[in-house]
Design a binder for these strands. Sequence first.
DNA 1: TTTTGAGTTGTTCGA
DNA 2: GTCGAACAACTCAAA
Length: 484
Amino acid sequence: MTDTAIVWLRRDLRLQANPALAHAIAHHQRVIPVYIHAPEEPGSMFTGAASNWWLHHCLLSLSQSIREMGSRLILRQGTDSLSCLQQLIADSKASAVYWNRLYEPACIARDSDIKTQLVDDGLEVRSFNSALMFEPWEMTKQDGSPYRVFTPFWKACVARGLPSPAVDDVEQMPAVSTRLGSAKLDELALLPELDWADGFADHWQPGEAGAEEALQRFIDEAMAEYADTRNLPAIRGTSALSPHLHFGEIAPWQVNNQVEAALSADTRQGAVKSAETFVRELGWREFANYLLYHFPHTVDEPMYPRFAKFRWETKTAVPLRAWQQGRTGIPIVDAGMRELWHTGWMHNRVRMIVASLLCKNLLIPWQEGAAWFEDTLVDADLASNTLGWQWTAGCGADAAPFFRIFNPATQAEKFDAGGEYIRHWVPELASLPDKYIARPWEAPASVLEESGFNPGEDYPLPLVDLKQSRERALERYKQLSSDS
DNA sequence: TTTTGAGTTGTTCGA
DNA sequence: GTCGAACAACTCAAA
């Protein structure tokens, strides 16, 4: 037996407030932080192209921080995490393996297998909570079954009290032997082959320091007005913490703690309500993980089985492609899809609008939209993505009633009144006056001429008629209830 | 056990 | 232009 512990890092890519890491440092002389690249393995962190870009830069940042602490991040790659861990255990003579828990079905299955095997091998294995304020199994209804409605779930969480766990900060890490082998980050080939993601760096700073900066910016500049501005996509009214939270660069309780601390010194009008609204969004993140844990089938099937019979369109290749490329001819939708392509992110309000168009106006299965988001979002998160898409499609927990079909033109006029967001992402529309920028198909000839805009040439004609497709969707949903 | 009221994010129509 | 009602049906938590 030696006194060496391995800390298997996954979506907890931070040094501060990291329970597994803090435990290892507190109880062992030698600590080996490792990231394992097993792209073929179910539950792997090698997923969408945008996420992989983020992961690359996050690992880069983390390995620099670990170096500053006097240690070294070990990278290993292989077909599966277990064999990589076993090899590392053999190489390092480690006696303990620690990690922070994940809650996706594939990760739970993998991790529990690994735990069983390593315990059999005679190692001490412990997992910790680094990602959630409430473990999914902690919160149940009075009858012991899981919540399926957000508000009572969140009320129960708040009643219990949002946690503020004390986790030791890392001041210094013991050195890792230079003989211990590590892959080079570039060998993991996380960056896309095309230079498509190059622009991401203008928008994002992956890593622990970037997460802290994003939170500070939000608290200083946006939080007090959050309740009013969070729906305006032209404004940086949201925190944009989602990718940082996804990769565990910051813990949700750290976010909550800092918001509360800032609030106690904040006398601005509406600050309390805004902070509450914001923290409630952290609650939605908890709820998404909670639902995925209790209802793992929701990853690709509707939460409620009666929706399995819903009659989606089958010939979807052409409209799906137009949607993905931001060429639907519906300005706010195209703006959102282009923002996604260029930055790896989309404003939440716009996510709802583009999703509603796909599921309801185009009648394309929500799974198609979820897959595209998984591939293109830097904050792609199976739990949040699943909840969001099922909510939009009307087949999930606390779902939108089926008659609630967004009108993308009305939404744009309401939340992008000056057309600033549309003009930024769809510059070919920029010359149109505000009145028609969200619905160029209604612009009279005189306006078209004056602005020099040629519908169908400069910009696609709308892919669907909003009114007709709305009625068609309502009809389909009606069929669903009359059939059963 | 039964009842009651509520449920993230809307749209349209007609007065 | 503003406002309220209608748009379905169902689940679910709690009284």
